[in-house]
């Protein structure tokens, strides 16, 4: 018993007291800022190099729904593009994921797009069913970490549950493979109404590096509105938790 007491003492308090005010390490690759517009030649170079065609030439911008956060564009144009450690990049408005040149503005939720029932029913208790649809297991591990002893999203009543029958919505990771398309649909259908859909990670939002693969079938996403996009490769637990808190209207 004394050994366990020693371990508990060493363990101390591990939870992050305020999940909305954490400062991540300087090198963390979060929201990029385009301080000044590159010239045409430079634009051509980075657009061609970007592995997922996340850089839009006209008007110049970076689509975080497609970006794999490799930071190569910053290495090419270090005085024009900088990836900051701002991890609050989740939003419910797909258009807002595009970072425009010359604008250093945080990515925010679009309150007009939040469905009324979300805040009415789920504000104090949100149970989610996770579907890994060909995710590479990094986003899955970060979602697990969201509930661990450090991030402890359970404090807000947000939790992953074992069955879609017990869930208020689904969280999809991965580009949705053809082989997982039917199971994704069945899982969604088994979730009672009203229900939400959250896409976590670049692969889920746009297909990422797997866009265009014959083995991917994203038709499920054509049928339903998405309530939250959580970019990242993988998405950081803080990105996920802060995104949900904004969606639920729980953030100060």
């Amino acid at each position: 018993m004394f050994k366990e007491l020693k371990i508990i003492k060493q363990h101390g308090k591990q939870f992050v007291p305020d999940l909305t005010a954490v400062e991540l390490t300087p090198l963390f690759r979060g929201r990029p800022v385009i301080s000044s517009l590159p010239d045409n030649k430079e634009i051509e170079r980075v657009v061609r190099f970007c592995p997922t065609r996340a850089i839009l030439p006209e008007p110049f911008g970076i689509d975080l729904g497609k970006c794999v956060f490799c930071k190569e564009c910053q290495f090419m144009l270090p005085d024009k593009i900088v990836f900051t450690n701002d991890y609050k990049i989740a939003t419910n408005d797909r258009k807002r994921l595009v970072v425009q040149g010359g604008v250093d503005k945080t990515i925010e939720l679009n309150p007009d797009l939040v469905r009324r029932e979300i805040r009415k029913y789920f504000k104090n208790s949100l149970k989610l069913r996770q579907i890994s649809a060909a995710g590479d297991n990094s986003c899955e591990m970060e979602l697990n970490a969201s509930g661990n002893v450090n991030f402890d999203m359970g404090r807000y009543g947000i939790e992953f549950v074992a069955s879609p029958r017990h869930a208020d919505g689904i969280v999809i990771t991965g580009p949705i493979s053809e082989n997982m398309a039917e199971a994704t649909q069945i899982c969604y259908d088994a979730t009672p109404d009203p229900k939400i859909i959250i896409l976590v990670g670049t692969d889920a939002i746009s297909g990422g590096i797997f866009e265009g693969s014959q083995a991917v079938n994203r038709s499920f996403l054509d049928k339903y509105p998405v309530d939250l996009y959580v970019p990242g490769n993988p998405a950081h637990p803080l990105t996920f938790i802060n995104g949900i808190l904004s969606m639920l209207g729980k953030k100060k």
Binding site: S177, E178, F210, Q214
Partner: peptide
């Protein structure tokens, strides 16, 4: 279920 066609 996880097949994404990586080799291809």
């Amino acid at each position: 279920y996880q097949h994404r066609g990586i080799e291809k």
